[in-house]
Design a protein around this nucleic acid. Structure first.
Ligand SMILES: Nc1ccn([C@H]2C[C@H](O)[C@@H](COP(=O)(O)OP(=O)(O)OP(=O)(O)O)O2)c(=O)n1
Ligand SMILES: [Mg+2]
Ligand SMILES: [Mg+2]
Length: 725
DNA sequence: ATCCTCCCCTAC
DNA sequence: TAAGGTAGGGGAGGAT
């Protein structure tokens, strides 16, 4: 009930996509899912694929990742307000460390029963500068610790160790006794000795974590497929005799490749046709009990998306066989699950749902500006703080590596200087070289050859985010979470407090508690405080007083405004608009005519520093979905069906995890564009067309089997593989 | 006018 | 090798 206010305020009535649901229907509703809650919420929670790049942008992006994306990164004046920096560093970091950090860079995972116990080993690791992981991850763990095992278990360990050293616990004990890191080589598990990779360089002082990746690469390097190396973008390799040859059985072509025949002639390298599928499902809540207004069911939309690449024949040799290791949609039966486990975008995309469960009462727009409907009631001007962690993923993983603080560091799955893994976050020294989130690691290495790469540590991000929000909630009731590292605070009501001092205090606490720095922007509305944060970074804060607003905005490149991405930027550039000052010249009418009513108004307002949003207006979830656009390769229709099936399962789990059901469902697919070349990105989806169909069913569901039926039907709408029609 | 479907765009 | 997700806002154009 309270919620409609939020939506109506801005949108002037209807046009809201789906009705909003009533009150509390959400968690309470279906009683049945109680038990799921615990399990599911943790790792599930899904998402939808965003159909990111339009054709135009896609191609430009491909050619020069930097040019249109982060090109300028306006380098922030770190100036003013940099206080506690020095002082805090002394007091802050808890010290588990007074001992010589002989295990620096070492991260162990203890498998099974050991003497001494896993807990004791953990104690040693922490005390001597190392790490201990409770869960195995090939990216975080550098050594597996394990006692000799029965043969039947050995096989298991061999397969999951992924080539990491498997070492006896005495390695730790002896190293501690010697007060230096001994080579693990003599301590390998007896049964595995023959198979150990030679990884002596592991201990290269720098960061062993990285070297692991590097080594793996070297092994495979030569076999890397040529297609993607350099030229790939230039021309469609005309020749390429493809192994194509005959095709498959009738089956394969029907599903996927609709224009198979045509495609075959295409320049495409590998004989694959890509095609993507995306499914979205929408649904209403099962309001069950409160029937009240049936229309209130909030519709909850649930999307599934899949993208696939189908290769029509030749499952045999050629490129594909080489790719077949394990992470590949048709090769790995648990592909979807593994994929999500390692996806950074999945992590940040689902973070919000985890936050909701973690801070149930705080996450819903806290009664928020309750009374004052239109507020704006002048009396006191509102005061908003925006706060954002500096290069979050990097800061967290280098907390215990002070020597790296001023060196260029980035977080990425791979350190392969020829690889197409994406940089997730780069610290400020790295940004000086032009390295930034989203570029390929090979491009990053080209910009900065000594860039240090760290692997992800999702558990740590989760933990730091919790500390971050605990601190924010402690100081302010009106907190609107934006993402795992970013939030708005409405501090208007905290009259006794000077916002700038408060920001200082909060940042200091964050640093002391997490070892990571945050920056803050303080201003009269959300737009301005957010912009202020950008100029404050890194490790600073910035207040924009009302009088300075005009000066501040006038020169500001429009791309800096939230809501203006690369497409809008280009469109405006064509009209000769590059700064807010220039944007102001256009009338609201013109803008609305060119960009639509809402977008036009937004542009007009933002260019003047006007923003009427309120902190804390968070609505109920409207949609839940899951999508995969990487590593999807289908050989025949069965593969695609299996894949859709796993997505249905995933979505079903996520719905249950949230305690909601859906009535409206959308399937999205990606289909390889006719003249698309081989994807530049390893296991990527390349240049695709995005298609979607949706359907609304009479009764809301979260049942896997029902989803499968619906999905099948939706899939049929695409007529994939039926050239005529 | 309003809704509905199929997109596109943006942010993290 | 590598993990290109997720969710919401909004526009165009056709159906009602
Ligand atoms: N394209 C992107 C953008 C972000 N992230 C992840 C990594 C970031 O650390 C985190 C937070 O995003 P921010 O936009 O806040 O970026 P950073 O915190 O890394 O840097 P900044 O100091 O600019 O906030 O989200 C990502 O993986 N890929
Ligand atoms: Mg940040
Ligand atoms: Mg952020």
């Amino acid at each position: 009930m309270s919620l409609d206010s939020s939506r109506s305020a801005s949108s002037t009535g209807q046009k809201s996509k789906r009705s909003v649901n009533s009150i509390s229907s959400n968690p309470s509703s279906s009683s049945n899912n109680k038990k799921h809650k615990k399990n599911t919420n943790q790792k599930t929670l899904g998402a939808v694929w965003g159909a990111k790049s339009p054709s135009s942008s896609r191609s430009s992006f491909r050619k020069s990742p930097f040019s249109d994306f982060g090109s300028y990164m306006v380098h922030k004046n770190r100036k003013l307000h940099n206080q506690f920096d020095a002082e805090a560093s002394s007091s802050s970091h808890s010290g588990l460390s007074c001992e010589k950090p002989i295990f620096r860079g070492i991260s162990i995972f203890v498998d099974g029963f050991t003497i001494p116990s896993s807990q004791e080993l953990r104690g040693y690791m922490l005390k001597y500068g190392g790490r201990h992981e409770n869960y195995f991850s090939r990216y975080r763990v550098t050594h597996i610790i394990c006692s000799n095992l029965p043969d039947c278990k050995i096989k298991n360990i061999r397969s999951f160790s992924g080539g990491l050293p498997v070492v006896k616990p005495t390695w730790i004990l002896d190293s501690v006794a010697a007060n230096k890191l001994l080579s693990w080589f003599p301590y390998q598990l007896d049964q595995l000795v023959d198979n150990q990779p030679r990884l002596l360089d592991f201990f290269a002082p720098k960061n062993s974590l990285v070297s692991k990746d590097a080594l793996l690469q070297y092994e495979n390097e030569d076999t890397s497929f040529k297609g993607s190396e350099q030229k790939d973008e230039s021309f469609p390799e005309a020749g390429q005799p493809l192994l194509h040859s005959q095709q498959i059985s009738g089956e394969s072509d029907d599903i996927i490749c609709q224009n198979t025949d045509i495609l075959i002639e295409e320049p495409t390298v590998g004989s694959e046709k890509s095609c993507k599928v995306k499914i979205v499902e929408m649904s209403n809540f099962d309001a069950e009990g409160d029937s009240n207004v049936k229309d209130e069911l909030q519709t909850n939309l649930h999307e599934l998306s899949v993208s696939s690449y189908c290769s029509d024949n030749q499952d045999s040799k050629g490129l594909p066989s080489r790719l077949s290791y394990r992470s590949h949609s048709t090769k790995d039966p648990d592909f979807v699950e593994n994929y999500f486990k390692n996806s950074r975008l999945h992590f940040i995309g689902t973070w919000r749902n985890r936050y909701r469960k973690h801070f149930p009462n705080l996450s819903k727009g806290f009664k928020n500006m309750d009374s004052n409907p239109n507020d704006c009631t002048g009396s006191q001007k509102t005061s908003i703080i925006h706060i954002d962690m500096d290069c979050f993923f990097v800061s967290v993983v280098i907390r215990n590596h002070p020597e790296l603080k001023d060196k260029p560091v980035a977080v990425c799955h791979s350190d392969n200087p020829k690889g197409t893994a994406e940089i997730s976050s780069a610290n400020y020294p790295a940004r000086d070289y032009g390295v930034r989130a989203g570029i390929f690691v090979r491009d990053a290495k080209a910009l900065c050859s000594h860039l240090v790469i760290f692997p992800y540590n999702f558990e740590a991000y989760e933990e730091v985010a919790d500390q971050f929000y605990n601190i924010l909630h402690k100081h302010c009731k009106k907190v609107q979470a934006v993402s795992c590292d970013e939030a708005f605070l409405d501090v208007t009501d905290l009259e006794g407090e000077d916002p700038e001092l408060l920001a200082l205090t909060i940042r200091k606490e964050i640093f002391e508690s997490t070892g990571c720095t945050a920056s803050a922007g303080i201003a009269g509305n959300m737009l301005l405080s957010r912009l202020a944060t950008r100029t404050a970074k890194p490790d600073g804060q910035c207040y924009i007083p009302p009088k300075k607003v005009d000066d501040y905005l006038c020169q500001l490149p429009i791309k800096e405004l939230p809501g203006i991405g690369h497409v809008l930027e280009e469109k405006l550039k064509k009209k000769n608009v590059q700064t807010c000052g220039q944007l102001r010249i256009l009338s609201k009418d013109t803008l609305q005519k060119n960009f639509g009513m809402k977008t036009g108004e937004m542009l007009w307002n933002y260019s003047r520093g006007i923003d009427n949003r309120h902190v804390g207006m968070i609505q109920e979830t409207k949609s839940i979905g899951a999508e995969v656009n990487w590593g999807v390769r289908f050989k025949d229709s069965k593969d695609s069906q299996n894949f859709l099936s796993s997505l249905c399962k995933e979505v079903s789990l996520r719905l249950q995890g949230c305690g909601v059901q859906g009535r409206s469902f959308t399937l999205k697919i990606k289909k390889r564009r006719k003249y698309a070349e081989e994807p530049v990105k390893y296991m990527g989806c390349g240049d695709c067309e995005n298609l979607s169909h949706s359907i609304t069913v009479p009764v809301a569901t979260d049942d896997t089997e029902v989803l499968q039926r619906i999905t099948k039907q939706l899939f049929g709408f695409f007529n994939i593989g039926k050239p005529y029609k």
